[in-house]
């Protein structure tokens, strides 16, 4: 067990690598109740999110159940947090799922802003969250919910539905098919046991990290932070520049960066040999030095891989400094693994 943002969480339930492989080949279960759930409703909720988020919730208009990934920026264009916002129809508004590590910063910000605007907003601490991830995730849901699972099984990626007391999104953090299930905490242990009995492998934080790394998914505090813009973190695609008149927090700073061209960018590296290239290690390039933001042994690739922030002008000659030795690395476009297939 380790402390993660004040939550006691298992790093693994036995073997991190076995858990990792279970998700790629079958299905794994993650207790992700540490994630922060905030509900926001009322006339003006849409306007608030259009002002606060770098992505545009107008994309969700008239599409209840749809979800959107976005960064929450500061005025300097740095990333306070990354989150998923689900549209739940006009009456119920939006559900926002954000990180545990940034909770003390983000929740007061959202709740104060909502209060100032006279909106209904609530941190839903009584809710737990279980992620079911892997090619067998639909079968597990069917085993537990029976025919009632059908609307959930029909979801496409980044869609959600409500089933009994549960809120189910076809989302995840592993690069595999799967669901994230938000439900009252007092019912979560029973669901966990039933998913386990149906064949789901309990997985800890360790596998969660190696799976998301292989999937090329950023982790806040590693690939991005308040000093790093989404443009330097490979998240350009999450910034909605149009319509130009939408003046979201951080827009001016991002536009200035965009005009000048970002100084840095995020790349994937496959490192030669077996020695893991870890967070904080230096990366030498043909255009100066960069740094590894996340790295480790990738069980599905069978090699060490890393995400690295390097000078934007770098075009090759990548070498990672591991214990004073330069180890050559190959730049690749993440994801390293998606839907069980190695892509690098």
């Amino acid at each position: 067990m380790v402390d993660f943002a004040g939550w006691a969480m298992p790093l693994h339930y036995g073997s991190q690598i076995a858990e990792h492989e279970a998700v790629r080949s079958h299905a794994g279960l993650f207790d992700v109740s540490h994630m922060a759930v905030t509900d926001l409703a009322g006339e003006g909720a849409r306007a608030m999110l259009r002002e606060l988020l770098a992505n545009d919730v107008a994309k969700l208009d008239g599409r209840p159940g749809r979800a959107l990934y976005s960064c929450l920026l500061n005025e300097q264009g740095g990333v306070i947090d990354d989150l998923i916002v689900y549209a739940r129809g006009e009456e119920r508004g939006y559900r926002i799922i954000s990180n545990a590590a940034t909770r003390e910063r983000v929740l007061p910000y959202l709740l104060d802003e909502a209060q100032r605007r006279g909106l209904d907003a609530a941190a839903r601490d009584e809710l737990a969250m279980i992620a079911v991830q892997g090619p067998q995730a639909p079968a597990l849901l069917e085993a537990v919910y029976g025919a009632a699972a059908e609307p959930a099984l029909a979801l496409r990626p980044f869609q959600s539905t409500e089933l009994e007391a549960a809120f189910i999104g076809r989302t995840g953090y592993t690069g595999e098919d799967g669901f994230e299930i938000v439900l009252p905490a007092e019912r979560s242990a029973e669901l966990w046991h039933r998913l386990h009995e149906a064949g789901g492998t309990p997985c800890g934080l360790g596998a969660r990290d190696s799976l998301r790394l292989e999937a090329g998914l950023n982790l806040n505090g590693h690939e991005m932070d308040e000093q790093t813009s989404p443009l330097a973190a490979g998240l350009d695609w999450t910034v909605a520049w149009e319509p130009a008149e939408r003046d979201f927090v951080g827009r001016q700073a991002l536009e200035a960066q965009r005009r000048q061209g970002p100084q840095q960018r995020l790349i994937g590296l496959v490192v030669e040999g077996r020695a893991p290239a870890r967070e904080g290690y230096t990366v030498r390039t043909d255009a100066g030095e960069g740094v590894i933001t996340s790295g480790g042994y990738a069980p599905s690739v069978g090699a060490p891989v890393a995400l690295a922030r390097v000078p934007a002008a770098a075009s090759g000659g990548y070498r990672v400094v591991i214990r004073n030795r330069e180890v050559p690395a190959r730049a690749v476009q993440p994801p390293f693994v998606r839907h069980g297939k190695v892509r690098v």
Binding site: L11, H12, S15, Q16, I17, G206, R274, A275, P276, G296, Y297, P304
Partner: peptide, 8 residues
């Protein structure tokens, strides 16, 4: 330590 991935 957990699963070992490299020994030198």
């Amino acid at each position: 330590l957990g699963d070992l991935v490299f020994v030198e």
